[in-house]
Amino acid sequence: MVNKPSNFAMLEALQHGMRNDPHMTMLYEYQRPVAAGPLGNVIDLYKEFGDLRIPDWGPIDEEWHVGGAAGIAMTGVRAIARVPSMCVTRCFELVFNQVGKLRHMTGGQVNMPLVIWQDAAGRNPGMAGQHADAGQEALYASIPGIKVVVPSNPYDAKGLLAAALQENDPVIIFHYPAIDGNPTDVPDDNYVVPIGEAAIRQEGTDLTIVGYGPAAVEIKRALPGLEEAGISAEVIDPRTVKPMPIDPIIESVRKTNRLLVVDHGHETLGTAAEIIARVAIAVPGAKFARSTFPDAPPPGAREMIAWMTPDAPKIVEAAKHMVA
């Protein structure tokens, strides 16, 4: 096994899926499904499956990619729509009023084997408002009928995509580039990380720290600082936002009696709010806190966005504050 970039790892899952399903089709805009692996090996899905199952080029028309893929999926053909990172909510209406509702609204007739591969942005300096936002998975998780997964490393990215490709319900997978800052070994063979299964990254007794995707990467960066501060943290990465694997988090908080949720998304109605609400109902009397990006668009200047982003030093400070 070797480390692989998440994009490459995900294309491996897609390649496996497309080899085993002669109709599986992908629509995309400019993120050509071509990537080089760590050993110089190249995956070129366009070369292998184009020009119909994977078109050569895509127009700037995200509604087409998602809406067209939904139409493909309604005919029973598994479809993948890959959407660029600054357009995370461009197709929200289609997902909200169509993709998420069709099975239920038609009395169970419509299968929707649709995977939205949502390339997400992240809190990068210099990109500003529209190109550095994050946390929109919380918006999608609020839609009935949509499953939402957010890997925090390349291993999970491949496994969660492979799992999504086996679903008959729509799944949106948020792919944040920050997860490549958390390199993992990735097997060549296909495997599945089950949707709805959390990972306990570290066991501990003083407090429970929860975060997924980029937040999980920051939590991992905070581990040495936590250790230095003498804090025994139990670290949980839910990996799936919906259906939320809440039980292991509840169990953990019953033990530690403290829950800190780190969220790269915004404060109001972000995923942190949902996790805390569920745990608070189950473990009354525990201590709860969240560190989130403020309710402001991400500013461009490095000084501002760095100060606003929940990062490893802030996580260590928050943990100290909670155990004090």
Partner: peptide, 8 residues
């Protein structure tokens, strides 16, 4: 202005 919710 909004609150600095990144801090506890």
């Amino acid at each position: 202005s909004v609150s600095p919710s990144q801090f506890i």
